[in-house]
Design a protein around this nucleic acid. Structure first.
Lengths: 187, 187
DNA sequence: GTTAGCATACCGTCCAGCCGGTACAGTCCC
DNA sequence: GGGACTGTACCGGCTGGACGGTATGCTAAC
């Protein structure tokens, strides 16, 4: 069972966070309104007050995915020198593949949304398109930088689905090599 | 609606193929036994004769994912020189990101299985672990080669979820660059 | 006549969404 | 200040439909 964390704060956020926990722990198929409500410490009626339908809950999860991504990257930027040419790309690597707990929940949000309705992911696509345009307009080697972002996504997905074959040391190697390729992308 | 393709051949394969079509067209959440049966041109009883439970159907989809992957790669090997040191890795790129229709269905199989029960993906993890061991034992630059495989997965996933931001020409660029990194991995 | 390969009808459960409530904090009027 | 009214936030039982699975019937092949 997914326990109800007595987390304070706005009910809306508690519900979204609870939904991510439910997906991570019992799977996207068991993401029911009752279970989410219980995990969030709210009644079903209370949940439906904030999210009038399951679809709206899933849409909010997709939105949250985008926000978490931006926040993780923004936070990670703080740890990288402003002189570094590949700062943005490295922030993606560190932000998403680092230890930020928000990044762990992102996979759950993506999976839950994707499982129920692919069109709800449009908001994520828009964000990726914007990022892609930035990349194309920058002085980076486009293809090489794009591959870095793809590898980030690939690793995140594998870990969300628990099918990553890497040992801990291998993972460290991979992340370090990603940083190296990020450097190679800018010159 | 998902039309019933009057595809001949063994019913079992027709059902699995139909399931992949259903997921690709209407989403993993609407992958119901009734819909799959209809799409495969079989009755529900007929479907349940071949797959006694939904779980067994999903398990077979995961198996099929592994098989499709191996076949796509094997087929692609034919188009690459035996002298090429990075032949195996390049076969992955071409096989999975190429035009083979089987590779298109793989994302659907993965998504459907993941949405319902992550433990059914174990068979996929095992295959990845095996491949990872091959890679580690080879004379390739491990991290660099691993990144190629991760980027392949990342791109495949984005395209399955229809959130890939790349234009057609950008995609070609990315694939070409992947081939280049594959070469860099072996020397 | 027995088995393989289906089809049809049906059952029980689960779940999304609805609805009739409750509690409470304003706030406007008198 | 106190009654009437309104909006916000939330509760929990209910129901109708969907969906997984069962039970049974049918037919052609061997």
């Amino acid at each position: 069972m997914v326990e109800a964390h007595a987390v304070p704060g706005p009910a809306r956020d508690r519900i979204l966070e609870a939904a991510e926990r439910v997906v991570a722990e019992v799977g996207a198929a068991r993401l029911t309104l009752d279970v989410v409500a219980q995990a969030a410490g709210v009644s079903k009626g209370g949940l439906l007050y904030h999210f009038p339908s399951k679809e709206s809950l899933l849409g909010a999860l997709a939105q949250r995915y985008v926000q978490s991504m931006e926040q993780c990257i923004e936070t990670a930027k703080g740890g990288i020198s402003e002189q570094d040419h590949s700062r943005d790309l490295k922030a993606c690597i560190v932000g998403i593949l680092g230890t930020d707990p928000r990044s762990k929940a992102m996979g759950a949000a993506l999976l839950a949304t994707a499982a129920n309705d692919l069109t709800l992911l449009e908001v994520i696509r828009e964000r990726l398109v914007a990022y892609n345009q930035e990349l194309a307009a920058s002085n980076a080697d486009f293809a090489r930088a794009a591959i870095v972002t793809l590898a980030i996504d690939g690793l995140m997905m594998r870990e969300s689905l628990r099918i990553s074959p890497f040992s801990e040391t291998q993972r460290v190697e991979v992340v370090r090599e990603l940083m190296k390729i990020a450097d190679e992308s800018y010159r």
